[in-house]
């Protein structure tokens, strides 16, 4: 088995007939944490959506492979079942579907096995405690009436429960207060192991401070213009993107 999780090659993506990604290359191996940073509109979220083959985005060029399998044109649910997870910037509200039932169902789909209900509830409770979540939320409708912070924590909870091989966190830290960011980082640390990988999409660096990041990529105008280590994130925090804008 190769060590590679995700391999993106020369990816070009359009959204609403406008070219957003202009040839992205990215490889994520097991045990690695990657970060994509970039100003608004640079194509960060498009990258995440393109990996998941969101029908609102169309790929005009390039391939995406996951665990040596071409997933460029796979359906969203198949991609998820292969072991990729995405935490949404704006999680959808789904009335009438409780958090527990939703996760139970999603878990049985991802493992292909029926879920043992008591074990599952215990597991859920444990994670919710770790994430400082109110256990009453388990029976509430998914994301309905959740605050911004609760929604983001709920995304992390889903990640922990579904335990994917690769987690993509799209602006999971945006709009959160310091405590919530700490909780989210804790969730990410709990998830992380040597067999899985994480891709964090962000435009601030607070969330990165407690994580051991392997690579930082700077995305500007649909292209990765620079790849470096955690030091690069610090540099961006101090100086902004202007240095890289005219490359």
């Amino acid at each position: 088995m190769s060590n590679k999780l995700l391999e993106i090659e020369d990816l070009c993506v359009n959204a609403e007939n406008k070219e957003i990604l202009k040839g992205i290359n990215l490889t994520i191996n097991k045990g690695e944490i990657h970060v994509i940073m970039g100003p608004n509109g640079s194509g960060k979220s498009t990258t995440a959506n393109a990996i998941f083959n969101n029908p609102l985005y169309s790929k005009t060029q390039g391939t995406i492979r996951f665990c040596d399998e071409d997933i460029t044109n796979s359906k969203t649910d198949e991609i998820a079942r292969k072991g990729i997870f995405m935490s949404f910037q704006m999680p959808e509200e789904i009335p009438g579907v409780s958090v527990t039932n939703f996760l139970k169902y999603a878990k049985s789909k991802s493992t292909g096995k029926p879920v043992k209900i008591f074990e599952f509830k215990d597991e859920l409770k444990k994670y919710m405690e770790e994430l400082n979540m109110n256990s009453k939320n388990m029976e509430r409708s998914l994301n309905v009436g959740f605050s911004g912070g609760e929604k983001k924590k709920n995304e992390i909870l889903q990640m922990l429960v579904l335990n994917p091989k690769l987690a993509i966190l799209d602006e999971t830290d945006s709009g959160l207060d310091v405590d919530a960011i700490r909780t989210v980082s804790k969730g990410i640390e709990m998830f992380k192991n040597s067999e899985n990988g994480i891709l964090i999409i962000t435009h601030n660096t607070k969330i990165l401070s407690s994580l051991k990041v392997n690579y930082v990529h700077i995305l500007i105008d649909g292209k990765i213009v620079k790849t470096g280590t955690q030091e690069l994130a610090k540099e961006i925090e101090e100086n902004g993107y202007s240095k890289y804008k005219n490359i």
């Binding site: 949404f88 789909k109 991802s110 409708s141 579904l162």
Partner: peptide, 30 residues
């Protein structure tokens, strides 16, 4: 049913058909 909602559910490994059925049952849940 919003396409965004379907995409969200599909990103959790749920097929499009199941996602729609889930949303409809949720709609009827009250």
């Amino acid at each position: 049913i919003s396409d965004k909602t379907i995409f969200y559910l599909m990103s959790r490994g749920i097929s499009e058909e199941d996602a729609k059925a889930m949303i409809v049952r949720g709609f009827a849940y009250p």
